[in-house]
Design a protein around this nucleic acid. Structure first.
Lengths: 221, 221
DNA sequence: GAAAGCTAGGTGACAAAGTCACATACAAAA
DNA sequence: TTTTGTATGTGACTTTGTCACCTAGCTTTC
């Protein structure tokens, strides 16, 4: 159950609600509930039966796979107004959740029980379209990841990651371990590549910190 | 345009049509057309703007990525009654096709122009559901591939492939190059692994032919 | 049926990436 | 200041991919 105060904040974060018809909005306020999920908390674990779908109105969730050796690889992230489409997928096909999702930055989420979610997909065009778009975006992005890990070299992938992040902050705060978990590699490999980058004057690095010095040089990998 | 003779064969291969309402069936017969696509023919190339969606009623299409070095990796296959959901994805998001699809076994396909397809997704629940299910299946299977290439060893992956295929035919007819293209590896690597399997008595292999001798042994990898 | 050509597969040297078992190094807490 | 925990460094080794070239067997063609 969502009260008036909450309703405003939620509809600001969820564009679908603004375009939705009155009937859907009413139902939404009746059955949805707000949840606050602290950072580090697992939203779904591989193999979970899914009970509710979460629509984020703040924070960031990271969806990843983890191998037997403990190595990780990030599949994608989602944040404001987006939803974990894998949850939707799991709900609709009544399968289990095929990856792990953890909260990276404390999140507020609107939770919608699985049965109701399934019903809405049937009844509301807009809702279905929302789910459809997300699903289709994820398919494209996961296919792009297959391409990356199958064909691109590690140094080029690390360089790409640094360049993508450096737009937000430079020097950027990230550990070698985090980079490894992002790309599905191991810390040692990342350390060696970064050392090489340092020697070539492309970056300068300290504990939990990497400063990009030569964007052009990184881009040419 | 589909005539009566064709209509029967088509509806046998496409379960959706049997469950579809009369209106959809009529439209279908009016705008769809049959195409025969010979083996080896590319259906869609990476980056193509998609003009029509193909529903297969016979044959098999393989969807794969190809890297700069020429290495390939299979994302999935589709056949009887299925459709290349990537085409649908490309049509709906009006993007380009993100992989290559080639006919592996001569195929007959019902072609539906992109604009009409898009319209049907909006108007027919059943049609939308069909697309939705396929999309969601593919997302799961492509995610499983990410897991494989990121975390599993090559010998285990080759063993899995052999075990999967041997259920259909044993000795199976496949070249080392084909296995490599399936798994995103290179021929040399596959040759070496197979040689190792041979020495351990797990398989026996000749030109374009591999006989599995010890399923249990392969499974334990 | 011998020569030529094509395709499948073999080989060795090397480079790139992942693993393992430790060794430091730095920062915050006690 | 000592302790504790986290981040990073190192060397030896394995696995995987690359390159350049070789060999074997089957097919076509004259």
């Amino acid at each position: 159950m969502i009260d008036q105060n909450q309703a405003k904040r939620i509809s600001l974060a969820l564009p679908i609600l603004q375009r939705a018809d009155a009937q859907l909005v009413r139902e939404f306020q009746r059955v949805a509930y707000l949840a606050r999920i602290p950072a580090g908390h697992d939203v779904f674990l591989e193999g979970d039966q899914v009970g509710a779908i979460a629509l984020l109105i703040s924070g960031i969730v990271r969806v990843y796979k983890i191998g037997e050796t403990g190595r990780e690889i990030t599949l994608y992230r989602f944040g404001n107004g987006q939803s974990c489409i894998l949850t939707a997928n799991a709900i609709l096909s009544k399968k289990t959740f095929p990856a792990i999702a953890t909260v990276e930055k404390e999140a507020e989420a609107v939770m919608i029980p699985a049965a109701i979610f399934r019903d809405w997909v049937v009844r509301y065009d807009m809702w279905r379209e929302f789910v459809f778009d997300l699903l289709s975006q994820r398919l494209s992005s996961v296919m792009a990841i297959v391409d990356e890990i199958a064909f691109r070299r590690m140094d080029a992938r690390v360089a790409s990651l640094l360049l993508a992040r450096v737009r937000m902050q430079n020097p950027l705060r990230i550990t070698h371990q985090e980079i490894a978990a992002e790309l599905g590699s191991s810390r040692e490999v990342i350390s060696r590549l970064l050392e090489d980058f340092s020697e070539r004057g492309l970056i300068r690095s300290g504990r939990s910190e990497i400063e990009v010095l030569d964007k052009g040089g990184l881009a040419s990998l």
